[in-house]
């Protein structure tokens, strides 16, 4: 039987990733946001789950206007960082869990 250990959330504008990559997290504009992440980061580092159910809305990244599913389940073994125009972000490849996803 699986046990749900936590539910965590974040604001998710693409600019947050750009701010991280460009070293802007200490600028006045961004500092409050990144300071707010710290308690959650600390907690997650101490409470690592086996699997994460990651739910998000697609900011015109995986889907164009050609196909707009209300829900979609990511079944891939791994997911490459998206290139939203700045080039792919320097973050690790996301490991999928195809058995659970299917």
């Amino acid at each position: 039987m699986a046990r749900i250990t936590a539910s965590v959330y974040t604001s998710h504008v693409p600019a947050i990733g750009a701010a991280l990559d460009l070293g802007k997290t200490d600028e006045p504009y961004w500092r409050p946001l990144f300071q707010g992440y710290q308690p959650s980061k600390d907690w997650m580092a101490a409470n690592i789950p086996d699997v994460i159910f990651l739910v998000y809305n697609d900011h015109a990244t995986a889907f164009s206007q050609e196909l707009i599913p209300t829900f979609a389940i990511g079944c891939a073994e791994r997911f490459q960082p998206a290139d939203e125009g700045w080039g792919p972000r320097p973050v690790p490849v996301v490991q999928g869990h195809p058995e659970l996803a299917r």
Binding site: A15, A18, G85
Partner: peptide, 12 residues
């Protein structure tokens, strides 16, 4: 936003 990224402009 992808046009801005192509131009190297921030969302701000």
């Amino acid at each position: 936003a992808k046009i801005g990224a192509t131009d190297g402009r921030s969302f701000q």
